[in-house]
């Protein structure tokens, strides 16, 4: 992207964004992040989500979860390839993604399937549920270690542990692909975006792009 050495419009954008983010703290993200789930729940209760509110809530929370996972995966490539530094927001985005997925799961458990024996049967026997549930389980240790103390305590291991989000993201995309009927484009778009963001992290790509500059 940045092929010229003199500061172009793109560099100005980068500088403006970086200057702004230096001043904006991460904590408001938690408050803003609480808005969509609350809105979805209230909309479901008040009949604004159509005639099948449970499915609509489930689907919307699932979609929001994927958006947040994708947003979290964008941070490193944005810094590496565009020089935009958003690292300080990554923890909030990751934790929000985890809580959204927890919400998505709870809607499915409590409002949709309801029956305990069927919940267990679904997790074991239905591949799309198994895949989604596995992704959720993978994110539990990541959520638990998303704090400064864990980073210090785990040292170099922390980074290794948190690379598990790559696997969880792939499983999340797969979960969406597996649950639709017939051939539908939307889940494949999510999968393509996630795979592209992961590909940007491959060492050969990083080396290739450095050589290109």
């Amino acid at each position: 992207m940045a092929t010229t050495t003199s500061p172009g419009p793109w560099d100005r954008v980068t500088r403006t964004v970086n200057d702004a983010t230096r001043k904006v703290p991460a904590w408001p993200l938690y408050i803003i992040g609480a808005v969509p789930p609350v809105w979805i729940f209230v909309a479901g209760l008040t009949g604004q989500l159509g005639v099948d509110p449970v499915k609509a809530m489930e689907h919307q929370m699932g979609e929001w979860s994927l958006w947040l996972i994708i947003a979290g995966l964008c941070i490193t490539p944005l810094q590496r390839f565009a020089g935009i530094r958003l690292l300080k927001y990554r923890r909030a985005i990751g934790l929000l993604a985890f809580f959204y997925i927890l919400g998505h799961l709870l809607i499915w458990l409590v409002l949709d399937v309801q029956i305990p024996s069927q919940i267990i049967a679904d997790i074991v026997k239905r591949p799309y549920v198994t895949v989604g549930f596995a992704a959720f389980l993978m994110l539990i240790p990541l959520a638990l270690t998303s704090n400064n103390r864990s980073i210090r305590w785990l040292g170099a291991g922390w980074r290794k542990l948190h690379q598990m989000v790559y696997a969880a993201a792939i499983l999340g995309a797969l979960h969406f692909i597996m649950l639709v009927k017939g051939f539908q484009l939307e889940p494949f778009i999510y999968a393509a975006v996630i795979l592209a963001l992961l590909a940007l992290r491959l060492s050969w790509f990083t080396r290739w792009s450095r050589r290109g500059r």
Binding site: L45, L111, V113, D122
Partner: peptide
């Protein structure tokens, strides 16, 4: 006889609202 991807033992009742719709 279940669908390979989900159970057919129960069904969600459209229009039953948020709770107890199965």
């Amino acid at each position: 006889v279940n669908h390979p991807r989900w159970s057919q033992a129960t069904e969600r009742v459209i229009g039953a609202g948020l709770f107890g719709s199965r």
